[in-house]
Design a protein around this nucleic acid. Structure first.
Lengths: 130, 130
DNA sequence: CCCGTAGTTCGTAACTTATGAACTATGGAA
DNA sequence: TTCCATAGTTCATAAGTTACGAACTACGGG
């Protein structure tokens, strides 16, 4: 019987910029991180089996959470059968002031741009059709 | 005879946060980017055959420049036999305000921390030896 | 004690990255 | 011109990373 290895949470001094950037360079992971950061409450993994209309296999999801955890971005805690995840944004803000805010802000800008582009496309399609 | 493909520079609207984070998640690439950003003048690739005391094979270096270019972070221009590289930080600053500044700042903080750690280690080693 | 739910691990297939060898491109000297 | 040197690129492949299904662990509740 193979026992499960304990969850790894780097101490804040061991958190690296490269690690953070790499973790947040993945669209699924930023989406998860953004959701965790925006909802004040802790959030369980299985809430993310669907992310931006795409369904994620749970083994993949588990790896994504591991990546976020080991980059130092989230803290995961077992509570019964579930895992409660919270961001470590306060700690990271102390170590790298403004970093996460700038990244999340850039993401909001990009999503807004993208939404606009989709609307434009839809309008063009309607015009062509009608 | 296989002709060389032209250099690809995405237009600023096509630059993505993921792309930027991915490009800057690599230690060699941030080091290059930081150097390009700090020196006001354009800089040729072969200046970076050594990066933070590590020597980089030139094929690898070429790929790193391609990654920076295609992420929209730098603009490369052939001048005779050399390639002149400049950052596109003004454009990116307009699209994603504060993003690059925060990332580069975080990097400076991390490097400073690292330098301190090395000094501490050296001091400890001297103490043990003497 | 067994079952169901929530996550993890493992094996493997698919993708990415690093690098040496061979190439292109350009400028200058003979 | 032709040849050479220098600066980068491309290509093949080896090494590393990521995705995901199947089988597992862990916990809580009948």
């Amino acid at each position: 019987m193979i026992t499960m290895r304990p969850l790894i949470h780097p101490s804040i001094e061991d958190v690296t910029v490269e690690g953070i950037l790499h973790a947040l360079a993945d669209p699924v992971r930023v989406a998860i991180y953004a959701e965790l950061a925006s909802s004040a409450c802790a959030n369980i993994c299985s809430n993310f089996l669907k992310v931006s209309d795409r369904s994620i296999p749970k083994s993949t999801l588990s790896q994504h959470f591991r990546a976020l955890r080991e980059a130092g971005l989230v803290r995961s805690e077992r509570r019964g059968v579930e895992m409660h995840n919270t961001t470590r944004c306060d700690e990271i803000e102390k170590r790298f002031p403004g970093l996460l805010a700038a990244i999340m802000n850039a993401h909001r800008i990009q999503s807004a741009d993208c939404a606009r582009a989709v609307k434009r496309q839809q309008a063009a399609a309607r015009k062509q059709a009608g």
